[in-house]
Design a binder for these strands. Structure first.
Lengths: 246, 246
DNA sequence: TGGGATTTGTTCGTATGTATT
DNA sequence: GAATACATACGAACAAATCCC
């Protein structure tokens, strides 16, 4: 499809993952210099990345201020889930309308991966795949904008879970996705919507619990683990331009 | 509430208006230098503006390429209306739930302005107010994210109308907004949703008609009319760096 | 297909505004 | 509350890529 820019996307994806896995906790500062140094890109491009993340609601990027990882409020959390509920219902309706047998196989493959990750207690993988299910479903709606909005909502929900949710609250809603698939396959729109809505209720109630405080690691240490495949010629050398300490 | 940055917002708003009123037609190039010169801001900030407009789907901003006014495709147009329909319904449901008498007065004031502009044949004003109604309604839902999404969808619909719609297709759906208000006031959610959905059908069918070709004016001439209150010391002098025409 | 004009991307020095002590 | 440290914003000059003829 459309490859906007490799470098930008790598950094964007890495930062997104770091935020969603709580490695970069809400409120953490994201200085342009430092990010640029780690991803071997100029501040110009870093700004593009931060702007994108800001548009997605993951970072707070007010002018003349250092960008920070967004700190969702309870009100925002409610809003996000409310909108998501409405769009998930629309997704389900559209998918039922366009249903093809291949959809079932695709979704079930994802659910199997999900269960495997859960059994292996790989929290982050599980969390990503659980969200991926909803994004994939939105893709099957055939509406690219709906897919984009859903992707945005899912990531924001993950951030909300990171802030307000309890760490290990992934218990037995493993087969809710499977049940939804079953309803979709029988092309029962009403039931599918009902199941999805109930599912969202479960997710929401477990995501919004209560805040907590922790120590936050230095962004330098964190980014190193998320740098991914940066192929710049001399990324090894930390390009951090030493401040004029004078 | 939050004033992100005056300069940025002025340019953002001006460009948005220029695009929605077809003064800057789809496909028109938006070079950073030229925009920066007109709004007396550096390319750094211009990029922030363009990034924002890109996130809203109004401009196409691929890396290493001159940004252009977005050219919506028919498929995108369908997608936008589909999502908008779903969210408009949600808005109506929420507004009915939180209804207060003051809402009615507020909305009716807007409808009166709308009718006045229509009678005066002020196309652009009418168009803006017609969209404003839906955004205001979304605000009354009490969900800030829903309001943000709706604002985005409404502006994209305006752009779509500019591309695919006929120029003078604003006939007698003047009182559809009024009817919706009536249904809201009687707190009849089902009827309000039905009216809104019908209304969206009318808007969509008139927005998506067929493409057309025209001559496009120079961006320099256009921006001058949209510059608004730029208070920079020497904006009078057109800073347009004259191309080395040789 | 080629070549010149345009325009974005990069860098660095400096200035200005925020935050922190 | 003032001084200092930090980080973004600006401007210009240059390089590189793209567009257009």
């Amino acid at each position: 499809m459309s490859r906007p820019s490799p470098r930008i996307d790598i950094a964007h994806e890495a930062l997104k993952q770091a935020i969603l896995e709580r490695a970069l906790q809400p409120g953490t500062k994201l200085p342009e210099d430092e990010i640029g140094a780690h991803f071997a890109m100029s501040r110009t491009l870093v700004r593009a990345v931060l702007a994108k993340l800001a548009a997605e609601g993951l970072v707070d990027a007010r002018p003349k201020r250092t960008a920070t990882v967004a700190v969702p409020t309870l009100a925002e959390a409610r809003d996000v889930f409310e909108v998501r509920r409405a769009l998930e219902a629309e997704v389900v309706r559209l998918v039922v309308k366009r249903w093809k047998p291949s959809f079932g196989a695709e979704l079930e493959g994802l659910v199997r991966e999900e269960e495997a990750a859960r059994e292996r207690h790989e929290e982050h993988v599980w969390g990503r795949l659980a969200g991926e299910f909803h994004i994939r479903l939105a893709k099957l709606s055939g509406n690219a904008l709906l897919e984009k909005y859903m992707a945005e909502l899912v990531t924001r929900c993950s951030l909300i879970l990171a802030v307000f949710g309890k760490p290990h609250s992934h218990d037995g809603h493993a087969n809710e996705h499977a049940e939804i698939i079953a309803a979709l396959r029988s092309r029962d729109a009403a039931r599918a919507v009902e199941l999805m809505d109930h599912h969202m209720g479960v997710v929401e109630s477990r995501a919004i619990v209560g805040p907590e405080e922790e120590t936050r690691p230095a962004i330098g240490d964190v980014l190193a683990r998320y740098a991914g495949a940066i192929t710049a010629r001399e990324t090894a050398t930390p390009l951090v331009r030493k401040a004029r300490t004078k």
